[in-house]
Design a protein around this nucleic acid. Structure first.
Lengths: 145, 145
DNA sequence: CAAATATTGACAACTTGTTGTCATACTCTA
DNA sequence: TAGAGTATGACAACAAGTTGTCAATATTTG
């Protein structure tokens, strides 16, 4: 059996996704190192910020496509550091709700201000339509997994 | 400062790349678990296979966009398991060349046969042109990092 | 209501991957 | 050729992330 052109392209995309993921994590670590953060913490804090409302650890993990326990560890650290507060969950006595503290909101805004010009610079010179197609295609692929 | 459309798209793509990377690693682990392999090992073995000629650990790490030491550890494991052999490097006494053993070639072929129909299924229903644009765009982004 | 099932947080072991240090091996330049 | 600088492998500490287990809490079902 030989690979179709689409199959070959898919494989190339997979390899590129792995490579990009590593490089983006490294960039994120640089961007966050001086505010007690990291790429991993930022992703969790960002998920909370983007949701706009308190979420359980499970919810956050699901939205990130990651395991519950990994997110739990990061969340615990950030509660300790004061970026996240725990609120009682009327639905579940053990599963507390995570919400951003003022400090959490603040650091998130700082990071977004740093990230913005960087994102603009990366997107610079790339056709907006190509970016849109890329995003759509990646989402389609993700749904097939 | 507000995000341009391209900047916003870029940020969405970044999040999608993180999510996809995790899911693809999980898929790869499923595909490889019964042949003493893993996603991480497969990536190294695959890089060697794709290159077609012996490479040093540094070369492989660079081609994968990963650190030298991470690849070193995986390579050492696979030498131990007999998937990779070490050959003297006329250019450098310490930096041995990695090459696939027969067992390594064999397992790589097995995995490629498993991966092929899966890649075809994932690519199914997605426009080949969109896949090409996605690949090109990801590569452009990678070069900007 | 009671029992089976699912969800959750804590804990622990493990894999993956990065960074840093050290000693050795190589390369380049003065 | 001597010395500075760079590349490499071994080793170790750490961060990130997965899986599994256990006990406590919810939920569903008979």
């Amino acid at each position: 059996m030989k690979a179709s052109p689409a199959g070959r392209l898919f494989t190339e995309i997979v390899l590129e996704v792995f490579k990009l993921s590593g490089q983006l994590t490294a960039e994120g670590d640089k961007l966050t190192q001086d505010v007690q953060m990291s790429s991993a913490r930022w992703k969790v804090l960002g998920a909370l910020g983007r949701a706009g409302n308190p979420m359980t650890v499970s919810d956050v993990a699901h939205s990130m496509g990651q395991s519950r326990q990994g997110v739990q560890r990061l969340a615990n650290e950030m509660v300790e550091l004061g970026f996240i507060a725990l609120a009682d969950n009327p639905q579940h006595k053990k599963a507390k709700l995570l919400l951003l503290t003022d400090k959490g909101v603040d650091v998130l805004q700082q990071l977004e201000q740093k990230q913005l010009p960087w994102a603009e610079a990366c997107a610079q010179g790339i056709d907006a339509e190509a970016l849109q197609i890329t995003l759509d295609t990646l989402r389609k692929l993700e749904r097939k997994l």
